[in-house]
Design a protein around this nucleic acid. Structure first.
Lengths: 211, 211
DNA sequence: CCCGTGGGTGATTGCCGTTTAGTGTCCGCG
DNA sequence: CGCGGACACTAAACGGCAATCACCCACGGG
């Protein structure tokens, strides 16, 4: 009952300042299709149909298709940044925080596979470089949170390799590789996901960090 | 030499059994464009233009576009399999062989970025699953070579984690992650590639394998 | 009352992969 | 020699895509 009457039936047409509402509706519909059918299935026409407008109408609110999907991804990455910040602030051992962050990172990827792949597995040119700027910045801030904790470990002299950057990049890319392949090759005969995550984290941290 | 004149001045038409030659020419042109411009730039029409035939002609020799690119990728993966086999047969310590194989794997990915990404970073549906069968089989045989050596390590009791499969998958996916991100995010402020490879291999093997 | 403007549309452009119907040339066979 | 058929190939078209264009029209301020 609370629904559709945004304004009394004064007019058959929606009131003039509806633009902002439309934008939200489009994002919502796009996200549904994007989650359900991936990048390929989320065409401009299908999103427009879902909202109930013509495909042209989407260009009123977004410059192009990429901007829609990137805005969805931004939302996902913001969530990751929030998680990273939370973990980063916990008053526990730095190594434990690194482990938590990497674990949360992998969980995030597995929970938001489409957004994750669009941002981190983008086939180098699926979307033009400059349009990703906003998303890339967010991802970089996630990485900054991460490397901050790694730097703590390095400062306390617990890094078996002296270089903070190479250690951080190794930890990150290794975890990325695991989830990326889990997502893109779902038919492979994988060991249980939890086991793989554990072996990855145990192995890497044991290999890179001293007690 | 290869005169780029479309019509040889001798006979207006090439001899009858030219089909298999055409196939080679197409693959060669496609590979050039594919390497130079990636998956996006390698369109049927552009490949056909390069060869000097109509776009329809490609369908004489290949069922569809994916088959062309996959055949190129097969060539690349066969090279990887050859390398893996060679290393696998070397009469040296199993751990040293695993390290060599992973190192060669990463070098291969960095040397054939397009083929590597198409096979291993395919956004889960860029090419239909069944068409990749041949390529997947080759990749699986590469993995078999790899896991064979890991199994040797496990059999000699040198695996810190008892599970051969999870260790092998961890090693593989971690190395994949490194090269995948190096390829897809070339603008990131990476440490030197050699350093990253070394830290990855040292850390992982130290973490997963006992002396 | 009228007119500018914001929100929206149908038609169109220019790519793409793929399909269909057809064309010219060579070969083997009568 | 002639002719049917196979072969290598093509032009044109189809449907789908993102993106653009030229419009349209109800509303609200003057």
């Amino acid at each position: 009952m609370t629904t559709t009457l945004k304004k009394p039936q004064r007019s058959a047409r929606k009131p003039k300042g509806d633009g902002h509402l439309r934008r939200g509706e489009i994002l919502q519909a796009a996200e549904r299709i994007f989650i359900a059918e991936g990048y390929q299935g989320a065409t401009i026409r299908r999103i427009a149909d879902e909202v109930g407008v013509s495909s042209t109408a989407l260009y009123m609110h977004f410059r192009d298709k990429d901007e829609i999907l990137l805005e969805i991804c931004d939302g996902a990455i913001e969530e990751l940044l929030r998680i990273n910040t939370e973990i980063s602030d916990q008053p526990i051992d730095a190594v434990a925080r690194v482990r938590l962050m990497l674990d949360a990172y992998m969980d995030f990827a597995l929970a938001s596979p489409n957004a994750y792949q669009l941002v981190f597995c983008g086939p180098s040119g699926l979307l033009s470089e400059d349009k990703q700027q906003m998303t890339r910045d967010l991802a970089d801030r996630c990485y900054d949170k991460f490397i901050g904790v790694v730097r703590e470990i390095g400062a306390s002299g617990r890094l078996r390799t002296g270089n903070v950057d190479s250690a951080a990049q190794t930890l990150w890319t290794a975890c990325h590789g695991l989830v990326a392949l889990l997502l893109t090759r779902p038919t492979f005969n994988w060991e249980p996901t939890g086991d793989l995550k554990a072996v990855m984290l145990d192995g890497l941290l044991y290999g890179l960090v001293t007690d």
